[in-house]
Amino acid sequence: MKTKVMVCSFLFFIGILVPLTGAIAAEGSIQIKGSDTMVNLGQAWAEEFMAENSQVSLAVTGGGSGTGIAALINGTCDIAEASRDMKPQEWEQAKKSGHDVHEFKVAVDALAVVVHPSNPVKELTFDQLSGIFTGKIINWNEVGGKDQKILVLSRDRNSGTHVYFLEHVLRKGNEKGPEQYAPATLMLPSTQAIIDEVSQSDSAIGYVGLGYVSPKVKTVAASKMNGGPFVQPSKAAAMDKTYPIARPLLFYTAQAPQGSVKAFLDFVLSAKGQEIVETMDFVPLGKKE
């Protein structure tokens, strides 16, 4: 019995400790860590880059944007991948640890709002989306649909997507706004889980990265303003910035990049690197701003 307590709590402790400390950087290699959204993309870049530069080795791991940023601050990774901006508190911690953090926008992720294919609702304004996700609008008939309770799905709080959607859709760009996801919102651990749930439940609404959209679900056109224009999510619409729910995907480095880190970054931002973005179903940066 006593041993059981011990073992349980020990494992539990390890379980929450490990993601915090992160992997210890191996010498002579570049450690990339962070956003789960970006793991596959980072891996694709790394593989292609290593094929061209065999003397450099890169290791890409996930864990969440926050994990990556914490690892960067602790000095256990060279590049943090993040699907959200660093928080002021994190900037402060980084400064305290003596880092001069640089931020790079490396790709764009468009979020599509999805519903069941049988749902008659075709378009939603940010006001309506905000109402639905904060729990002010609870029935589909309030936004032109059937008389049916809305089942609201979101990614969980460990997801940069969750935070982005909260700040840019629920709070309509006012990042410190009072709006919150309604308590009844289902927090699902993966984007695939949202797709599965939406495809099975005719009253569900959720948001997913553009790359995950499949014929099993229907995308909804979105508009920032009441009254339109409503735009269906697409790569083209995200690239010419007419689609309103698109977020930057970021790299953070602890110092101004140099050596192989710089080489990698240049590669990522090159035409070839941005081609990979497209094959991984994200949106390339497009023309230099």
């Binding site: 929450i16 864990g63 926050g66 709080r157 460990n158 308590p183 927090m187 651990p189």
Partner: peptide, 28 residues
Amino acid sequence: NASVLPKTILEPVRTMTATIAAEMGETV
């Protein structure tokens, strides 16, 4: 994982363990 006060067993709920696991990675 919906953090509502559960009324029946047929509703979504959020447990303590899932909360820690889901949120620890992203917290500041």
